[in-house]
């Protein structure tokens, strides 16, 4: 299981792309899915690379991203 994962609130996302450019591991990309406001929302294109660093969430102007991290005991189990 990847160390981190993000949940992007599709209704809040405005498709600005800042999270996509900020992620150091190129996890995120535009999904091609448009929300009710007409924005091309971001999604995890490569979830397996996510470390849960939360840089995407820090730069999201719309506070649309929640970040989760794998609990330390689960990390050990996976190793």
């Amino acid at each position: 299981m990847p160390k981190g994962l993000v949940v992007i609130d599709k209704d809040r996302c405005k498709g600005c792309g800042l999270c996509i450019g900020a992620c150091p591991f190129e996890v995120l990309d535009f999904s091609g899915e448009y929300n009710s406001a007409g924005y091309n929302v971001a999604h995890m294109a490569h979830p397996e690379r996510c470390t849960g660093c939360a840089i995407c969430a820090q730069v999201c102007p719309d506070v649309a991203i929640e970040v989760y991290r794998l609990q330390p005991d689960k990390l050990k189990e996976g190793a």
Binding site: M1, V7, D9, G52, A57, E66, V67, Y68, R69, Q71
Partner: peptide, 16 residues
């Protein structure tokens, strides 16, 4: 929507 998308073993690290 978060609860349905997050598998067991993950804890919240950044939230509103």
């Amino acid at each position: 929507q978060a609860s349905t998308q997050v598998p067991e073993g993950y804890v919240k690290a950044f939230f509103r």
